[in-house]
């Protein structure tokens, strides 16, 4: 005789439902993964707004506050006369620290959620004061603005992946509660 309890349903545990549960699990997993993206091309908050030649250039940054690690820089270019967005320029972003590393990236509208903005996804290697230079080229004319941004230290990794570390204890608590309720309802 089996030592373990023989689950009568063990061989016929509704595999169709199992597949659905599995599909559910896979999709839920992807949902969780999707939630864990640290940076999205959203625009963020206004960091710098300056006029340069015929343009008004506004620089947005995300996340808030800006931290070492993945970040997004978005730029809106508007015509100084009528404030219409300029959508056919070439935009380059250069970031640098005194005597330190320099990062050059091209900002493109394809990378932005708001297609009126030019966005660049990059990673700040360290915290501190960074100088930013945005160059806009249109009709062979080049216009630049510069500014300074303060980058905060990176988020502690446990905070970034809190959901993954919280999943087991939360599930265990729910399971314990489930078992307790089952026992209580059985006794009642």
């Amino acid at each position: 005789m089996d030592r373990f309890s023989t689950d009568a349903d063990a061989r016929n545990d509704g595999p169709l439902s199992v597949l659905h549960a599995l599909l559910f699990f896979v999709l839920a997993a992807v949902t969780l993964l999707a939630q864990s993206y640290p940076v999205r091309a959203d625009g963020g908050v206004v960091q710098i707004q300056r006029s340069a030649g015929p343009f008004i250039i506004t620089v947005f940054t995300a996340p808030i506050p800006l931290r070492a690690g993945p970040a997004e820089i978005s730029i809106m270019i508007q015509d100084n006369k009528n404030q219409n967005p300029v959508l056919d320029a070439k935009v380059a972003v250069m970031l640098g620290r005194d005597g330190g590393e320099t990062i050059k990236v091209e900002a493109r509208r394809e990378q932005s959620k708001n297609k009126l903005l030019y966005a660049a996804l990059l990673s700040f290697p360290e915290a501190g004061r960074w100088e930013i230079e945005v160059t806009v080229v249109k009709n062979f004319e080049e216009h630049k603005i510069t500014g300074v941004m303060t980058i905060a230290p990176p988020r502690y990794f446990l905070l970034t992946y809190w959901w993954a570390l919280a999943l087991p204890p939360v599930t265990i608590v729910l399971f314990v509660l489930n078992q307790w309720l089952k026992r209580r309802q059985k006794a009642g």
């Binding site: 089996d2 023989t6 545990d13 595999p15 599995l22």
Partner: peptide
Amino acid sequence: MAFVPANQLTHDR
């Protein structure tokens, strides 16, 4: 056939 993953590990038939 489909079956519950790891379910076979819970019994000792």
